[in-house]
């Protein structure tokens, strides 16, 4: 099951970038550019795991939309250009899970989305690439239905690559996420883990090395 995310943002360029990014990372997205229309659509379809709301919207603004989201029990993250603390406080006191101020970085937004989904128990725990399936809950990996044993570090690297599928993850980001600290110095150990993942799961062409940038798990 993919997580479904509602995006309400009147700026088409931002909406398309966020939606594209989330889609390639394995989310389903619905985009609206008008608050009123988004609210109306909820009557027919409100099976969303999360809503990303702009605050300044035509039709109905983000704070108004929040009422509808609450009704259908959809957690909310505000995407706002308003930096004044008053609107932040209002947004959070009303019960929004989080907010992110423009201009924001997509990876930051995705980390926040993931946190909210986990906190509300909606996070998809099963990730797939080709015939490989990873369950982050049971910490198991199967290939074509057969269990494959991975070392803890290998599991961590694969999980991170799967979470940000189709996106480039830098070596530093991988080290930080898997090893849990700002790893400085020797990163050869990462190359070793990637090598063994490719071999064990037959993902040699799927895990791409982008010189000077990092790695990317591709599936299109």
């Amino acid at each position: 099951m993919k997580n479904r995310i509602l995006i309400v943002e009147d700026d088409e360029a931002i909406a398309s970038a966020v939606a594209l990014n989330l889609q390639v990372a394995g989310y389903d997205c619905a985009v609206f550019d008008d608050g009123r229309r988004a609210a109306d659509s909820l009557q027919d379809d409100h099976a969303y795991d999360l809503a990303l709301l702009d605050i300044m919207l035509p039709g109905a603004d983000g704070f108004e939309l929040f009422g509808y989201m609450e009704q259908y029990n959809i957690p909310v993250i505000y995407m706002t250009a308003k930096t004044d603390s008053a609107s932040e406080i209002r947004g959070l006191r009303d019960g929004a899970e989080d907010y992110i101020v423009k201009p924001f970085d997509m990876l930051t937004l995705m980390v926040r989305i993931e946190k909210v989904l986990r906190r509300t128990g909606r996070l998809n725990t099963v990730y797939r690439v080709r015939d490989v399936e990873l369950n982050s809950e049971t910490k198991t990996v199967t290939k074509a239905g057969k269990p494959v044993y991975l070392q803890p570090l290998e599991f961590g690297v694969l999980l991170t690559l799967l979470k940000y599928k189709n996106m480039t993850v830098t070596r530093e980001q991988l080290m930080t996420k898997v090893w849990g600290y700002d790893y400085v110095g020797e990163t050869r150990v990462l190359d070793v883990k990637i090598f063994s993942l490719r071999k064990k799961l037959d993902l040699t062409d799927a895990i791409r090395t982008l010189p000077k940038l990092g790695y990317r798990l591709e599936e299109r």
Binding site: D11, A13, A17, V18, N21, P103, F104, M106
Partner: peptide, 9 residues
């Protein structure tokens, strides 16, 4: 901020 965010993304 809005156009900058779009460009950045």
């Amino acid at each position: 901020k809005t156009p900058l965010t779009a460009i950045l993304l």
